[in-house]
Design a protein around this nucleic acid. Structure first.
Lengths: 138, 138
DNA sequence: GGCGCCTTCTTACTTCTGGTTAGCATTGCG
DNA sequence: CGCAATGCTAACCAGAAGTAAGAAGGCGCC
């Protein structure tokens, strides 16, 4: 994710003609989008939204297919951004609970539209994909 | 993105207890999310939504900070998934126009919530980030 | 006529992210 | 004793993304 190209690298220097919002806000929002528009973040968000509070391993199993490393990293970043609270119960074996914050629930709600879109249009998308393949092969 | 771990690799094999939807649909939707929840896809989507039809270079400048390689790849995938139409005017120098399809506009609308979230809460997020840094350093 | 420009896209080469595997810490249980 | 359970880290490696350069080909400039 690399902090949105820390100086807006190649491809010219951004068109000067942007909508209304201030460039600073625009840049911040883009940073957030870049960090939040991550596969694992979305999946973890949905898992926690659906099940309430989950332990580390439960999040992993619910999300499915995520490595411990990425799960740790994703949850850390989400905690850092105030999307989840992380409660460590100092027992052996370790027990850590993750819960969405209000901010996290809001974001989850915002992503809801994307989930709905995916569920609504996945047939159209796979049709488009098939047509595309046929077009380029034929 | 790797097609949602082509066999749901590590971290056990998904919890058997999932909501209502069929596992096949669930998996397909996850694939789509994984491919569509990409930083560049979101940014390109927004650029095209906002400006209507754009040429290759214009998309790049509007998005800002994207390499030509990734722009080509992203637009190709979006075309393949039926999100944009790609119209090549066979002139020299080359001239290629990109426009959102109805499907793309729907997706853009779905992402609108995320943009709104980001604009609404970026102050809270940066506050949370600052607090987190203070907490872990102090 | 030769040179270079324009724009989109491709092709090496390099850097960085993410996955895999192994290990640590610490208590209880067989 | 030794091993399972749980959250997390470290080392290593494949694959993804960034960088830079080139190709195509008609047109303007000298």
């Amino acid at each position: 994710m690399r902090a949105i190209r820390e100086a807006m690298g190649p491809m010219h220097e951004r068109s000067a003609a942007l909508p209304a919002v201030s460039p600073a806000v625009e840049s911040l929002v883009r940073q957030m989008i870049a960090q939040v528009a991550d596969k694992w973040t979305m999946l973890v968000l949905e898992a926690l939204e659906e099940h309430g509070t989950l332990r580390f391993g439960e999040v992993g199993r619910t999300v499915g297919g995520i490595s411990q490393k990425m799960l740790t990293k994703t949850l850390r970043e989400m905690e850092r951004d105030g999307l989840v609270t992380r409660i460590v119960h100092p027992v052996i074996p370790p027990h850590v609970d993750y819960t969405l914050t209000e901010l996290g629930r809001e974001l989850s709600a915002a992503f809801c539209g994307v989930w709905t879109w995916a569920e609504t249009y996945y047939e159209q998308v796979s049709a488009a994909r098939k047509a595309f393949r046929a077009r380029e092969e034929g």
